[in-house]
Design a protein around this nucleic acid. Structure first.
Lengths: 179, 179
DNA sequence: GGGACCATGTAAATAGTTACATGATTAA
DNA sequence: TTAATCATGTAACTATTTACATGGTCCC
C-alpha cells in the first residue's frame, strides 16, 4: 500500500501555506476519525517534496523566526490532481476493542465493561469535536468554496461515531442487565 | 504500536487447532471489517510462538500431508489472558475515500460519484457477508459458549456498515440532484 | 493437462511509530 | 521560574505489505 502522506500534505497546502507543525495539528484535529500522520512521516516528506519542487518555502519575513511555511507549486498541484484520479486502495481499519470483545470469554465482565466505557467516552468526545467543527465551518466564510466537501466528510464522522455510541450504549446496557 | 498478530492467533487457536492458512482465511472472512493480517505476519509469528512454546504442532496423522495444525498451550493461554487485561492502544482507521471527498474540488463530480459507488458496493457486500455470518452463527451449536461475544462484534459491523451505506446513499443522492 | 484453489514460507521493500534532541515562546 | 505548548527534525525500531518461489490437490 503506497503511502498517502504526500497527498495529504499537498491537499492541505492547496488551501493555504502552512508549516509541518500546522499540518500535523490539522490532521490530528480535522482528520482524526479517518486519518493520521506522525512527524516521522511529515517532516521527511516535506524535505522530499522540496527537492522534487512540488512545494516551496514561503518567504514570510515576520514570524519567520518561529516557523517555516510551505506553499504548493504548479508541479505539486499536478501531482495532487493525478492522485485524485487514481483508484482508491484497500482501506485500513484496526479496532483492538473488537478483538477483545470477540475473545471476551477470557476476560471478566467488569473488564469488558470498562473497555467499552473508555471506547464510548473517546467517541463521545470525538463526536463533540466533529460537531464543533461543523458549527464553526457553517459560521465562517468559504473562500475556497470547499465547505460542502468538508461537511460531507464531517457527516461521515457523525454517522459512524453515532453508530459507535449506539453500539457502546447497547453493550453497556446488556452487561448491566446481565449481572 | 505493538503488533497484535500474536494475540489474534492465540485467540483463534483457543477455539480449535488450525493451520496458518486457516488463520488467514478466518481473519479475512470474520474479522474483515475491523482487522487484517498478511501471510508475512502470520507464518513468522507462528514460528516464533513455536519456539517460545506458546503453541505446539498438532499431530494429525490423516490430512497431515496437506497442512500443519497448531494448538495453543497453557503458556500461550497465559499470554492471551495477560493481553486481555492490557490497555487498548490507539485505534487505526485510514479511509482514503474521505481524503478524496475532502479534496473533491480537485476532481470532477463524475469521478467522485464513481468512487462513492464503489465504496457503497464494497460495504453492501461486506454487510451481506456479516449478516450471513450472523445467520450461520444462530443456527449452529455453541460449544465454546462464545456466540454472544461474536454476535456483539457482528452487531458492531452491521451498525457501522449501515452507517457507511446511509452516508453513501445520501452522497449519491446529493450528487444526482446537483447535476 | 490446465486452471483454481490449497498451503507454506521468506526476502526485500516500504510504511509508520517512537523516542529523543534541541530550543523558542507563552502564560501562570 | 516553571510548565505547557510551539516548532523542527532524525535515528532506530517495529510493523506490514508485496512479490516471489514451491508444490500439492481437486475437478473439469
Amino acid at each position: 500500500m503506497k503511502s498517502k502522506t504526500k497527498y495529504v500534505i499537498l491537499g492541505l497546502l492547496s488551501e493555504c501555506p502552512m508549516s509541518g507543525y500546522d499540518l500535523k495539528r490539522i490532521i490530528d484535529m480535522r482528520f482524526r476519525f479517518f486519518w493520521s500522520e506522525s512527524y516521522g512521516q511529515i517532516y521527511p516528506q516535506i524535505k522530499k517534496m522540496l527537492e522534487s519542487k512540488e512545494i516551496e518555502k514561503e518567504s514570510t519575513p515576520k514570524d519567520s523566526r518561529r516557523k517555516q511555511l510551505y506553499r504548493i507549486t504548479d508541479k505539486g498541484l499536478k501531482s495532487l490532481l493525478l492522485w485524485m484520479d487514481m483508484p482508491i486502495e484497500k482501506e485500513t481499519v484496526r479496532l483492538e476493542i473488537l478483538l477483545k470483545v470477540y475473545f471476551a470469554n477470557f476476560m471478566d465482565d467488569n473488564m469488558l465493561f470498562n473497555y467499552i466505557q473508555i471506547f464510548r467516552k473517546q467517541h463521545k468526545e470525538e463526536l463533540d469535536i466533529i460537531k464543533g467543527f461543523q458549527k464553526e465551518l457553517q459560521s465562517i466564510p468559504n473562500p475556497h468554496n470547499n465547505h460542502q466537501n468538508i461537511l460531507n466528510v464531517i457527516d461521515f464522522g457523525i454517522r459512524t461515531n453515532q453508530a459507535y455510541l449506539d453500539w457502546s450504549n447497547n453493550m453497556l446496557h446488556k452487561l448491566e442487565v446481565k449481572q
